[in-house]
Amino acid sequence: MSLTATPPTALADQVIAWLGTQQAAMEALLQEIVNIDSGSRQAAGVDQVAAVIGAHLERAGLSVQTQVFEGYGRCLQARLPAAPGGPTDAGHVLLLGHMDTVFPAGTASARPYRVEGHKAFGPGVADMKSGLVLNTFVLEALARVGGASRPVHLFFSCDEEIGSPVTRDAIRQAAQGAQVVLNAEPGRITGNVVTARKGSCLTVFEVQGVAAHAGINPAQGASAIEALAHKILALHALNGCEEGVTLNVGHIEGGMAANVVAPLAKAQLDLRYTAATDLDALLKRVREIIEAESLPRTQGRILSQHSTLPMAPTPPALLACYQRHATRLGFQVEGEFTGGAADSGITSSMGIPTLCALGPVGGYAHSEREFCQIDTLVPRAQALALTILDPA
C-alpha cells in the first residue's frame, strides 16, 4: 500500500457512499453483539458474537473461518482477495479486533445496550464491539466494489482483555506477510488515534505464612497478610523507577478468619512498561521483592506471569495517510501514546507498520460509564476504508 497516493476517485466515492447509508445497520449489529455477554473465558458468549458477525460477513459473500480455543471461544477470520489486476505478490492489510470484554456474565442483561443522544452505552460498546462493527462493514464495503489493490484480511481474537495468552501465535500467523495492520480499538475520547502503547505484565503471586490463634498464641504464627502488605509497599515503590513504568497491586485475597493469623495470601500485580524499558531487569527486581522473606517464616512465590508487548511507534507516513483521509471526511486526528496494552503490540513487534484506535470514538472503557459516540461510526469507517484503498 502506498502511503502517499490518492485512491481512485470513483472507487473511493462508491465506498464512501455505501458506508454513508449504513448507520442504522451498524447500530443494529452493535446492539445485537453488545447484548451478548462475552467476557474473557466466557466461551459460549464469544462464540455467539463470532456467529453473529460471521453470518453477516457470509451474507456479504465473504468466506469465514473460525478457530476454537478450548475454554476461551472462537477466533474469527475472513479474507477478501485483491481486486483483479492487483499485484500478485502484494502483502495483505490486516484488520484487527477482539470479541472478549472485561465484564462478568449477567452484565449485558443488567445494563443492556441503550442510546442517549449520540452516545450508546453497554458492556464493551466501545472496547471494542463498535470496532468489530466498523471493521465488519469496511470489509463488506470493499467486497462490494470488488476489493482493494491488496488483499484485506480480518482477524477477531477471543482473549485480548487478559493479554492474549492462547491466541498470540494465531495473531502472529494472521499478521505474517502483512503490509500494514489497522486495529479498530476505540478512538480516544479526544477523537485521536493511537500511535504507541505501553506493554503490560500480569504477575500472580502468593505468600505463605504460619497459622496460629490470634488471641491465644499469635507469636507462634507468621502472618502472610502482613508479609504481603510489606511486599505491596515495596512493589509500589518501583513506580517511576524508569520513565513510563507503573506498578499496581490491584487484587488481593487471603486469610481464614479474623481470629487466625493468616497462613496464606495472594495478589495480582499489573506492571506497565514502554518499548525502551529493560523488562528483564525490572522483572528481576519484582521477583526479588516477591520471594524475599518480608517477615520471618513467610515465603513468597510467583504463580504465573504473562506479558503483553508494547506497541512500537507508528511510522509517520501511515499516520499521515489516515489523517489525510480523515480531513477529506471533515474531521481531524492526531496520534496519541497510551498506557493501555493491545494486540497491536504483537504485530508491531514483528516489524509491521501498525496503527491503532481506529474504531469509533469512545470513553470510560471497562466501567459502567463506557460509551461509544455512535455518530462517529460511519466517518471512521469511511476513513479506514479510504486508507486501505490507497493504491500500490
Rank of each mutant, 00 (worst) to 15 (best):
R144D: 13
M26W: 04
D280R: 13
L384K: 02
C158N: 09
L3P: 00
R328G: 14
V115A: 00
I232T: 05
E336R: 09
L283Y: 10
V145G: 05
A262Y: 01
R79P: 10
A24L: 04
T6K: 10
V260T: 15
A17S: 10
G330F: 09
Q176C: 11
A10E: 15
D89F: 13
N217F: 13
I33H: 00
G209Y: 09
E242Y: 03
T387H: 05
P360A: 14
A258E: 14
A174K: 02
R41V: 06
L142W: 02
L355C: 04
V34H: 01
A258P: 04
R59G: 09
V52D: 04
R272E: 08
T327E: 14
N135P: 04
F331I: 10
E70M: 13
E226G: 00
G363H: 05
E161W: 02
L29E: 01
V138N: 01
A262Q: 06
Q67E: 15
I352R: 07
C356L: 05
R301M: 11
I290C: 09
M1D: 01
D100T: 11
T167Q: 08
S130T: 01
L233W: 09
G177I: 11
A357R: 01
A184C: 13
E161Y: 04
G97L: 02
C321A: 15
L269D: 00
G124C: 07
G85P: 12
A342C: 13
Q176P: 08
A312R: 10
T274K: 06
D13L: 15
L139P: 02
L11K: 03
G254W: 03
I352S: 06
T203N: 07
R324E: 10
G363M: 07
S367H: 06
R328T: 15
E293S: 15
N217I: 14
A342I: 02
L329R: 03
F156E: 01
V52K: 00
L329Q: 05
M256C: 13
A229R: 06
P263D: 10
I171T: 06
H251M: 14
C75G: 02
A229S: 13
W18Q: 09
L384T: 04
L96M: 13
A281R: 15
L238T: 07
P315M: 09
R144Q: 15
A275Y: 12
E253I: 08
F371M: 07
V194L: 12
L30M: 03
G300N: 12
K231V: 10
S2W: 06
A267T: 13
P87L: 13
D127A: 08
L29H: 00
K231L: 11
A17T: 12
Q323S: 08
A141S: 12
G117A: 11
M128K: 04
A108F: 08
L76H: 06
R285C: 10
A257V: 12
V133M: 03
P315V: 13
N183Q: 12
V333Y: 01
L154C: 05
S109G: 07
N259L: 14
A237I: 13
V115Y: 00
L139W: 03
D278C: 14
E116N: 14
